[in-house]
């Protein structure tokens, strides 16, 4: 990997354990921290907007950082203006975030809104930064099904990290204790959404039933006896070459030959 030292800021939030709901480091944010560490080493900055007393934040420091900045915000605040204002003057070249928070609304809108506010480009699903030369970064974007796409983007930019990024390193207890949470007082903006919307425990979603829309008995009979797939084309009595040609045509048509 070849790049000049980068000024990277990773945004971190407080996560919740999927089973117990206990506060912990958020999975995707930890991956973003790991990626930031591989780019900027100890120079990585961590930023959180929220409660500076939150113990779960220390888990990020335990990944090998001495301090992080916390913009003090009450629980019901809209953190976007605070984060945007801070980042505008922080001189960062790359801002890393997770793609969805584990607590609160978790709409995954924060990186998009931040990029819009700063007027920076946004890379979704960052997997790896390959190189940074002359203010242009070459990065790999993770796609579904394990695929990767190479993109080129001008600094500074915002990038969100999802579960396809490399697994985050463990958090060590000692450094987590010793690390400093630097708190800053900033203006507070109330989030309007929570006035009209309510959070409630998740209801299990109804399972979709296979509904047979039949008006006559014969149609019902047909629906009950028909095979799931009506069966496709069957090629018999042909040379292997013709068979291979047919398969090849289908693979081309489905665009799976790369």
């Amino acid at each position: 990997m070849s790049h000049d030292p980068l000024n990277v800021i990773t945004l971190v939030s407080v996560g919740a354990h999927p089973v117990t709901g206990r506060a912990r480091r958020a999975e995707q944010d930890a991956r973003a921290v790991d990626l930031g560490l591989s780019l900027a080493g100890k120079e990585l900055h961590l930023l959180h907007a929220g409660d500076p007393q939150a113990e779960a934040l220390r888990a990020y420091l335990g990944m090998g950082l001495a301090e992080m900045t916390v913009l003090q915000q009450p629980p019901q605040a809209d953190v976007l203006p605070a984060l945007g204002n801070y980042l505008r003057h922080a001189g960062a070249q790359l801002v890393l975030t997770g793609s969805q928070a584990e607590t609160g609304e978790g709409s995954g809108m924060l990186p998009y809104l931040l990029a819009e506010q700063l007027d920076w480009p946004l890379i979704v699903g960052l997997a790896e930064v390959e190189s940074v030369t002359g203010g242009v970064a070459q990065v790999l974007q993770a796609l579904p099904r394990g695929q990767r796409r190479r993109l080129q983007v001008r600094l500074p930019f915002v990038a969100s990290v999802d579960n396809a990024a490399p697994e985050a390193r463990q958090s060590a207890f000692g450094p987590a204790r010793r690390g400093q949470l630097q708190q800053q007082e900033v203006a507070v903006v109330e989030d309007a959404l929570l006035e009209e919307a309510q959070l409630q425990p998740a209801r299990p979603r109804p399972k979709r039933l296979k509904v047979i829309k039949a008006k006559t008995g014969a149609e019902r009979m047909k629906a009950a006896t028909a095979k799931a797939s009506a069966g496709g084309q069957v090629l018999t009595d042909m040379t292997p070459e013709q068979g291979a040609e047919a398969i090849f045509a289908l693979l081309r048509g489905e665009d799976v030959l790369r």
């Binding site: 709901g21 607590t103 609304e105 978790g106 409630q200 425990p201 209801r203």
Partner: peptide, 8 residues
């Protein structure tokens, strides 16, 4: 919402 334990 969140990690899937809540609805909004």
């Amino acid at each position: 919402a969140g990690a899937g334990q809540q609805d909004l």
